[in-house]
């Protein structure tokens, strides 16, 4: 599909040696347009460039899927926390300090051997920023948004997850302001691991519900 290929070219070419604007290569139209807009907004006093830097730094270095992994690991080792997490997800996640934009109202979905939850936003790209950071390109892409609801098992197979016929698949389409986080199953062979070691195993994709958490040896 041409639309898909085009997005692929745009989003996946991050070999910075060849990025326009680096090492004297000419700027693309988009780069020029963004620079012009920022400079205009600064000149008019509508944005402060230092505030822009602080916003970028937040999502580039501070807020990301390691936050969600801490929530999951804590739920795995602390039954009382898990109970709070499932009963009032927003407050239990806030206990760990993860609050705010695009996570104001959270719902945690527990995966079990019989129920597999996965999350999509078919209408745009809603995603729980405080616990997972900014969404990956595939989550925002037309193929995922189109197919997750009509062919969830096919999408899961592409991510390497094959579910038995006895497993129920629940797809959650984030059409309102609730944001969903999947609590994946704790992998076998992790009984002796600490909370930190468990958190290190938890992947972003498992918290979206398109992967399982791999065991300690993959």
């Amino acid at each position: 599909m041409s639309g898909h290929d085009h997005e692929h070219d745009h989003e996946h070419d991050h070999d910075h040696d060849h990025e326009p604007g680096v090492h004297g290569a000419p700027l693309t139209d988009t780069q020029l347009r963004v620079r012009a807009l920022e400079s205009l907004l600064v000149d008019k006093g509508l944005v402060d460039p230092k505030a822009l830097d602080a916003l970028i730094d937040t999502y580039e270095t501070k807020v990301g899927p390691r936050n969600g992994a801490r929530v999951v690991a804590k739920a795995w080792v602390d039954p009382a926390y898990k109970q709070r997490l499932l009963a009032d997800s927003t407050e239990a996640i806030a206990e760990l300090g993860y609050i705010g934009r695009q996570g104001e109202d959270m719902v945690v979905l527990e995966n079990t051997p019989k129920v597999h939850n996965m999350v999509v936003c078919t209408l745009c790209s809603c995603y729980p920023w405080p616990v997972l950071g900014l969404p990956p390109v595939w989550y925002k892409s037309a193929p995922y948004r189109a197919r997750a609801v009509i062919d969830p098992r096919g999408v899961l197979r592409e991510f390497g997850v094959s579910l038995g016929d006895d497993v129920e698949v629940r797809v959650w389409d984030s059409t309102a302001e609730l944001r969903y986080l999947v609590l994946p199953e704790r992998p076998a062979g992790t009984d002796g691991l600490s909370e930190d070691e468990l958190a290190a195993l938890v992947t972003r994709d498992a918290m979206i519900g398109v992967a399982k958490v791999p065991g300690p040896r993959g």
Binding site: H4, G21, A51, D53, L123, A146, D173
Partner: peptide, 30 residues
């Protein structure tokens, strides 16, 4: 888009960076 056909496979990039271009950061922040 829910249920549309013809969009192709889901193409997940391994070890995807938060941003692919510097201008994307500025757009997010602006």
């Amino acid at each position: 888009m829910g249920g549309m056909h013809g969009m192709g496979p889901v193409d997940a990039e391994p070890n995807e960076p938060v941003f692919h271009h510097d201008w994307e950061k500025r757009v997010l922040a602006i």
